[in-house]
């Protein structure tokens, strides 16, 4: 018996990758919440803080823009990406993809590429709006540095999100813990950093993901000289990425039981 009609060739990886990127892009563009979280919410903060004394109380416009950028990354990576991944695992999308001849790493990489690209575009929009409404003039170098820090920030929050889906199976639990974690990180980063909660909290805050990123963003926007604090923040971010990505990959399960 001949099987001329039956196809046994392994499909080209390039076509598989384009298909995955296409799927993930359609999904992210269709997910209104993700776009709102990563762009609109930060812009609302930028605009709202131009009124009244909010600016000086929170530490100047560069810190506000830093906060807006950090918030956009935090919500879209820690909530958007993480919940979408947990949901796709729950309903079996990941398993459906895994039985195709696309390698596992490619399925994950495609999601990450689309997510990070969205974050970078959103960050550029946020910083442009921020510079306009807060009257800052930024040079090309600063824009590039903002993009670099945004990349770092996205990696930190994606790693934390990956650790969540790695350690927790239930989509509902991931959703609840993700939200809680987001609020804790945000409050710690913002209010802990002001020192009103005492020195210990301030130190923890400065080293926390949100605090470290806000330091880096605001120093880039201020064009302040590279400080020991910046080195510390950078190292903290790298450490978060390494530790949480390791946990998230090591214990990640593709199936939902």
């Amino acid at each position: 018996m001949t099987n001329a009609a039956v196809d046994t060739a392994r499909p080209p990886l390039g076509l598989a990758m384009t298909s995955l990127l296409r799927a993930d892009s359609i999904v992210i563009l269709n997910s209104k919440t993700s776009l709102v979280l990563s762009t609109l919410l930060p812009i609302v903060i930028l605009v709202a803080t131009t009124f009244g004394k909010a600016q000086s109380r929170l530490g100047g416009s560069s810190l506000i823009i830093g906060l807006a950028l950090t918030l956009g990354l935090l919500t879209s990576c820690l909530l958007g990406f993480t919940l979408a991944l947990a949901h796709d695992r729950h309903i079996g999308v990941l398993q459906r993809l895994r039985v195709t001849p696309a390698p596992n790493w490619m399925i994950m990489t495609s999601r990450l590429i689309v997510q990070v690209a969205t974050n970078l575009i959103a960050s550029v929009i946020v910083v442009i709006v921020g510079a306009i409404v807060h009257g800052l003039t930024l040079n090309v170098g600063q824009y590039l540095l903002v993009i670099a820090v945004a990349l770092l920030g996205a990696a930190v929050f994606l790693a934390i999100g990956q650790a969540l889906v790695g350690l927790i199976q239930s989509t509902n639990a991931i959703s609840a813990i993700g939200r809680l974690l987001m609020i804790v990180l945000l409050l710690l980063g913002i209010f802990g950093g002001t020192g009103i909660l005492g020195d210990t909290i301030k130190a923890i805050s400065d080293w926390s993901p949100v605090g470290a990123l806000m330091t880096l963003f605001s120093d880039v926007l201020n064009q302040s000289a590279w400080s020991g604090q910046d080195t510390g923040s950078l190292l903290a971010c790298v450490a978060y990425i390494v530790v949480f990505a390791f946990i998230g990959i090591r214990w990640f399960r593709w199936d939902s039981r």
């Binding site: 060739a9 392994r10 359609i26 999904v27 949901h87 796709d88 398993q95 459906r96 039985v99």
Partner: peptide, 17 residues
């Protein structure tokens, strides 16, 4: 996998597609 066609017992396609 290139030689296999699969219909899983419980699975779904991306809800947005």
């Amino acid at each position: 996998k290139a030689r296999l066609g699969v219909q899983l017992q419980s699975s779904s396609f991306q809800a947005e597609l």
